[in-house]
Design a binder for these strands. Structure first.
Lengths: 201, 201
DNA sequence: GATTAATGTTAGTGAGTACTAACAAACGTT
DNA sequence: AACGTTTGTTAGTACTCACTAACATTAATC
């Protein structure tokens, strides 16, 4: 009984890995089967079609629950700290799922439903952040700003950083040598300063 | 005689457009032919194979000549102005060729030679910038810094901005509403300030 | 008007590939 | 030991698609 689940998960894992490297169309069901140490039939018995593999993988990928918990329990209402932990969590989730991100992006024209599934995440996260900003403003810990625009800025910055950090380095063959952690924390610090109310030291 | 060239260019243009949307494997030679208003045979007579189409497109794409001219004639040795024009040119070239960038990136595992062709560009640009920094330091207009690391920072920032600006907005369906031009100029301004020698107003 | 170069047309080949059907083997559970 | 569930095997189907060959057509050059 537990074998079903684990083989299913195992297939998904290998499929995402291969598709992340060679693209959805670049990988055959045979390849996925071999990489999973499983017969091709097993794949079709589990998922029915190649498209469903990707669909299933996309549905299993979601940072919404994780973010939900973060916003419910881990916030300190210190602006900089909170933005940092939100960003850090976002970065972690994106990095963990970077293959899926790429596949979804590449197939955005050919498999719109897959892309639709994936794009729910940032939209939901934007809502979370906007609610947080509203709360902070009520507490007098935030300047009166356009909550949506500022939430967007944060996401924008994070997405840009993720893409350059997680994806390009292996591509553009340049000397990295830039410390990753510090870049993020410094950006967040600046961003938080810009949002704090006027009375500063 | 001019017809050959123009049909060839026309095919390349349409091929890149389609591949940019649906991926290299997602497009058939038939589709490219139809989009180009041309027989499938014409394509094979011109390029021999589907792979050669992409290869030819990649070889035609290069911002090196453009950058070469910029570095030779258009610099003013005002740090901020120069970095801005370099960045702006980079952004323009990347935006003009964004389809090719994506294709090359997506096929980095399956068609390494294509990727190799594309990656010559940033490496060359890095060299240009490093030489520029060396000159500026000689003129006493630049702090003594690690030229390679700083050139990397600039390219890094530009690449990150390009990707979020040119590619993500249509993807993540978020309200853009952020002014593009100002974001870039502000970043460059900050970057330039960080590189100027100490004696500041 | 004849020649040449570029393109069109048609038909087809061969390889790859998603997916199916039918039966056999392994496995755990009771 | 019997049963049900999951997986493996094999063979095959239907389809797509890159690519070719042979011949017809247009268009420019001289």
């Amino acid at each position: 009984m537990s074998t079903q689940v684990s083989t299913r998960e195992h297939i998904l894992k290998q499929a995402v890995l291969l598709m992340g490297q060679k693209g959805y169309r670049g990988v055959t069901t045979k390849e996925i089967a071999d990489a999973s140490g499983v017969s091709e039939m097993t794949i079709f018995r589990h998922f029915g079609s190649k498209g469903n593999i990707l669909q299933a993988a996309m549905e299993s990928y979601s940072y919404i629950p994780c973010m939900e918990q973060l916003f419910a329990t881990q916030l300190t209402y210190n602006l900089e700290d909170d933005l940092y932990i939100i960003s850090k969590t976002y970065q972690n989730m994106m990095k963990r799922n970077q293959n899926l991100i790429w596949i979804g992006f590449n197939e955005r024209y050919t498999m719109p439903e897959v892309h639709e599934t994936a794009s729910k995440n940032p939209r939901q996260l934007k809502e979370f952040i906007m609610n947080y900003f509203a709360e902070m403003e009520n507490k007098g810990l935030l300047r009166p700003v356009d909550h949506e625009a500022q939430a967007m800025s944060l996401l924008w910055m994070n997405a840009g950083y993720f893409i350059t950090d997680a994806s390009l380095p292996s591509d553009m063959q340049m000397v990295s040598s830039v410390s990753t952690e510090s870049f993020l924390s410094e950006s967040i610090s600046t961003f938080a300063r810009g949002l704090k109310p006027d009375a500063n030291s």
